[in-house]
Design a protein around this nucleic acid. Structure first.
Length: 615
RNA sequence: GCCUUUGUAGCUCAGUGGUAGAGCACUUCAUUGGUAAUGAAGAGGUCACGGGUUCAAUCCCCGUCAAAGGCUCCA
């Protein structure tokens, strides 16, 4: 399915050679939407109507909420405007003149937009409709609502030249949503209408198919269907329960992670879940992120804080003794569970939760070790991500923001170290100027999943703040005390979120090494049940995850159930198999494998496990 | 937190101002089976929760909670 979509989207000629074509279509769609809404609901004020990655939206201010039924009416009206093939005309206009018109039309948001346009900028507006069609009266008083075939909007463009150039079956209105004016929650909340628009009906279809595919893969649905995890309202929102099958996967992920880190020169830590609040005051987190922290608890007149991050703990672990420069770099890693207050409306399945486990690590190193340490992190990141099936990355380098700590020298050193490592790795990256944290520059890595969506997981940050605040030191060769450089990094980001991404990436069809149940044995009749159990015991002793179907259903039903449970391998056991000491193997990916001895099955499984592939 | 929508059996969903429905799952019985659904019977619901209107509310109204989509936020 996914590759079909990709093929469709990448098919030469499907998209026009003009890169602005889609943009024009979507921009004009937004205007047609605005025109349609104001024609049907003249009391509505328009705010802003830009294009997006998949279409367009327009924000409206209207006392009455739009209903889904209104959406249908609006879409019909849009189709009429498209069918009428009205011209879209650009006009350069004088600021004072357009201000008068906006005031007359009583469009406060437009006025604000006009005031936001720089003095030296050319102001343009776009008309939809034949201005010369207006009768004399309305021509003198061109108020939009008085003429259903005439509308204009302040806009920099570009646009199509006629509404008829919008392909009527390549656009659709999608949804209604609330949105704050200028994205500011202290400002009025507007009603946003989302639409999607494409060059051809075929493209729209490809987009809708992709959307459906994303819905099919939704980790919340698969998590429920396969009984991987739950989030229970009795316990509270954003708190994840890992059920046995999900927990099994997590255990496999954690085991893998620990081994990979031990192999890469990390030491592992376990640190507490709560600590004295003073720690968070020292680190600066309390000042900056108080709003996102759970409330403190009082214990013997001391305030304790459930940890929203692991860094200060690792810093304390480092600081517990004086380290020689010879010991550096020191790499401390922990699967550390943290709790952060997220507003209820922000919670989303496993992707946005209130309690999660970071695969956190902190590297304390000498200035001249930064580049090689970062390169080491990049290598480990690539190894880990590709073992989980993610081989395409987009890399971002974020540099010093306006508000930041540390002197220029150290920022340059750190930024150059990051660049040096990226160059050594030969990774292309995009620079996000001023996008760094206040305490240092960072590299963010976004992975691409099976249906071409991007997810940000990994982050590598140089931190100047904490070593300073906690007064970290090492003993240099000349026996002076120097400040180490601290690198903060996570590969998965959050285990919960990464699990969600994994579920969606594999659509629940985990590769054999991660599958919570690898083999289900299906006895064709009661008589073979005990034998199946003995085979299962044998395979379990070899370290495989095996279960026997206890349902006593017919084979067809047992196979169907195993398929629905997305179990990679089923082994049928009956008269023939018992007699010949074999198993009839069927895998989810490639179907019938015929009769195999357990040794032969084991060999095939081992291959798939080592290569981390589906079988 | 805010806006819109939704909330009926474990799951997916019908439905009505007059005592509650289907399919799947579950239990029991029969069936001893060969690569995606054997048959029959049964059990299962304070129609999210709390108020109000009404002779009567799962349905209409108000509030609360939760979920979905979006906005905001994300060390």
């Amino acid at each position: 399915m996914s590759s079909e979509i990709k093929q469709l989207l990448m098919k030469p000629g499907l998209f026009s050679s003009d890169p602005q074509s889609l943009l024009r279509i979507r921009h004009t769609c937004a205007h047609v939407l605005g025109m349609a809404v104001q024609a049907i609901f003249p009391e509505t004020k328009v705010a802003i109507g830009p294009w997006t990655d998949t279409g367009f939206y327009y924000d409206f201010d209207r006392a009455e909420p739009f209903t889904p039924h209104d959406l249908t009416k609006i879409e019909k009206r849009m189709r009429r405007i498209i069918k009428a093939n009205l011209p879209v005309v650009r006009e350069v206009i004088d600021r004072q003149q357009v201000r008068k018109e906006i005031e007359r039309e009583n469009e406060p948001y437009k006025l604000e937009i006009l005031d936001g346009i720089a003095v030296d900028e050319t102001i343009t507006r776009y008309f939809i409709g034949h201005t010369n069609d207006l009768d004399t009266d309305t021509a003198l008083d061109p108020v939009k609502s008085k003429n259903p075939n005439y509308w204009w909007d302040l806009c920099a463009g570009p646009h199509l030249s006629h509404t008829g150039e919008i392909v009527a079956d390549a656009f659709a209105l999608e949804s209604l949503a609330g949105a704050y004016w200028r994205g500011d929650e202290t400002k009025p909340q507007l009603q946003r209408i989302y639409g999607t628009a494409w060059e051809t009906a075929e493209q729209l279809q490809a987009y809708l198919t992709q959307k459906e595919e994303a819905k099919r893969r939704d980790h919340r649905k698969i998590g429920k269907d396969l009984d991987l995890f739950s989030i229970q309202y009795d316990a509270g929102g954003g708190l994840v329960f890992w059920h046995p099958k999900g927990a099994r996967i997590r255990l496999l992920i954690e085991d893998y992670w620990r081994q990979a880190h031990l192999d890469s020169g990390y030491e592992l830590l376990y640190t507490p879940h709560i600590a004295n609040l003073d720690l968070w005051k020292t680190s600066g987190h309390f000042d900056f992120y108080r709003e996102s922290m759970f409330d403190q608890m009082e214990i013997e007149s001391q305030h304790y804080q459930i940890k929203p991050m692991n860094c200060p703990f690792h810093v304390l672990a480092y600081k517990n003794q004086l380290h020689s420069y010879r010991e550096l770099p020191i790499r401390l890693a922990e699967l550390g569970t943290v709790y952060r207050y997220e507003r209820s409306g922000a919670l989303h399945g496993l992707m946005r939760v209130r309690g999660f486990t970071q695969d956190d690590a902190h590297i304390f190193c000498l200035p001249d070790q930064v580049t090689s340490e970062i390169l080491g992190v990049l290598n480990l990141t690539e190894q880990v991500l590709s073992d989980f099936g993610f081989t395409q990355y987009e890399v971002y380098l974020s540099t010093r923001p306006d508000k930041s700590v540390g002197d220029n020298e150290i920022w340059d050193l750190a930024t150059n170290a990051l660049i040096g490592a990226l160059d050594a790795k030969e990774w292309k990256y995009t620079v996000d100027e001023g996008g760094g944290a206040f305490y240092g520059p960072k590299i963010d890595i976004k992975i691409r999943d099976a249906i071409d969506r991007q997810w940000q997981c990994s982050t590598i940050q140089v931190d100047f703040n904490l070593p300073e605040r906690f007064d970290l030191k090492y003993a240099a060769a000349d026996d002076t005390r120097q400040r180490p450089i601290m690198i903060h990094r996570a590969i998965f980001g959050s285990l919960e979120r990464f699990f969600g991404i994994l579920i969606e990436n594999y659509a629940g069809d985990f590769p054999l090494w991660l599958a919570p149940v690898q083999v289900r044995l299906l006895p064709v009749a009661d008589d073979f049940y005990d034998y199946a159990v003995s085979v299962a015991t044998q395979l379990k002793q070899l370290g495989y995850r095996v279960e026997v179907d206890k349902s006593k259903e017919r084979l067809g039903r047992q196979i169907r159930n195993a398929e629905l449970a997305k179990i990679p391998i089923v082994a049928v056991i009956g008269e023939r198999e018992m007699a010949s000491n074999t198993l009839s193997i069927r895998t989810r990916k490639s179907g019938d494998h015929g009769s195999l001895t357990t040794a032969a099955l084991q060999e095939r499984m081992q291959q798939a496990i080592i290569s981390k592939q589906q079988i």
